[in-house]
Amino acid sequence: MTINVLLKNRILKHTLFWIIYLLIWILLDVLYGFSFERATYNYLGCIIEIPFYYIHMYYLWPKFISRKKYATYFIIFIPLLVLNSWLVLLLRYYLVFPYLLELTNPPKDFFALPRILGLARSILLWFGPPTAIKILQDHFTNKINIERLEKEKKISELNFLKSQMNPHFLFNTLNNLYSLSLKSSKKTPQALLQLSNLLSYTLYDASEDQISLEKEIQHLNDYIELEKLRFGDRLNLQLEMEGDFSKVMITPLIIIPLAENAFKHCALNERGIVDISFKIAVTQNQLQINTVNPVANVPKEDHKNGIGVQNLSKRLQIIYPQKHTFKLEEKAQKFYTELCIDLNNA
């Protein structure tokens, strides 16, 4: 309990640090042959030096060095250092020597410039370790803060992309149901049941950071069944699965945007058979997803990639940075997608 209070109290922490730091230097002087009392008196000048340290590290350093104003920093720092050295000599001359050490005849050159500069150099050496500690502490604190902000930014961006994705998926699915209702299809109730399963997935399972690949594939199957109701006999679908999916965990809603994109392109074909192929494979701890679908013979701006694929690309960059490849290609009136995710420590 006492340790926790100490760690949270900045003044107590700093006070304890200086006490320990001074004791180390006093003990070093004792090892060199000084009495403990004499060694303690030698460091009474710290009463003046420590405030100078705080002026330097908490004002001059962040105001000038951090902003790369080096010339201004040295123009201010050097005179302050010399002034600090001179004030320490005054303290020794008028208090430490005559009253504590009972030395009545200090050297005549006590306030000479070489002595002042020599003490200034000693002050710099004495402040070396605390300055290094402060700089390292600030570095790691800034690093932690930057990592925290980047993480919060990524979480916010992911939440935004998910919030876009679910309405986008619902919009597409409702369009499918609307098509069935126009035809007064008897399959509409079944489609509503499929939609219920899909919404349950997107509202609950998709809110998790990771889910099993098996659940994601079940979600894909539900979506395909819904699309089959719309395309009927026109749809020629090949779905190929390879590998062991039971222990694979991935972020939700990775496969469905690729399926939506494939069916969207096929929907542009008003007539004829549409061929769509999906391949999902797990080999050597890598997940590979390939889709192939026809592209309608319409201007390219009419069948460009939609929100789903764009969001998927952004999400992959956030969740699997440098651990995935995502390729989109159109050739010979067919559209190919290839997604490969490295599952090691994913």
Rank of each mutant, 00 (worst) to 15 (best):
Q164P: 06
C46L: 06
A262H: 03
K323P: 10
M57G: 00
R234Q: 14
P299H: 10
V292A: 08
V248L: 01
K8C: 06
E338H: 13
L44D: 07
D342L: 05
V30I: 13
L22R: 09
I155Y: 15
P62M: 02
E102A: 08
N285F: 05
I24M: 11
F36T: 09
Q218H: 09
K215F: 04
F263L: 07
K327N: 08
T251E: 02
G45N: 09
L203R: 12
S185E: 13
L192F: 07
V82I: 07
Y336D: 09
T72G: 01
I155C: 10
F160L: 10
L149T: 09
L193F: 04
V248F: 05
E242C: 09
I11M: 13
H139L: 04
L220D: 06
Y336C: 14
R67G: 07
G118F: 02
I75P: 00
I255F: 06
I341S: 01
A259M: 05
S196I: 01
K13L: 10
P129A: 15
I144D: 12
K13A: 01
I289T: 08
C340W: 04
L81R: 04
T72S: 02
K247L: 12
L158D: 04
V298G: 05
E37F: 15
I20K: 07
L312V: 04
G128T: 12
L44M: 12
L81F: 01
F171P: 09
L174H: 07
W18V: 07
G306P: 01
I78F: 01
I341K: 00
L81V: 00
Y43A: 06
K247D: 14
P79A: 03
L95W: 06
Q310C: 10
S163N: 08
W25E: 15
A206V: 14
A112Y: 10
L31I: 14
I19P: 08
I76A: 02
F52I: 00
K186C: 15
T202L: 10
F231W: 05
K68F: 00
N105M: 13
T2M: 10
L258Y: 11
L91N: 03
Q210M: 08
N176M: 15
M57L: 04
P62V: 01
S35C: 03
Y320C: 02
F110E: 06
S212E: 13
Y201A: 00
S196R: 03
K143T: 12
P130D: 06
P98H: 02
L23M: 12
N261L: 08
P51L: 09
E216L: 02
K228C: 05
S163K: 04
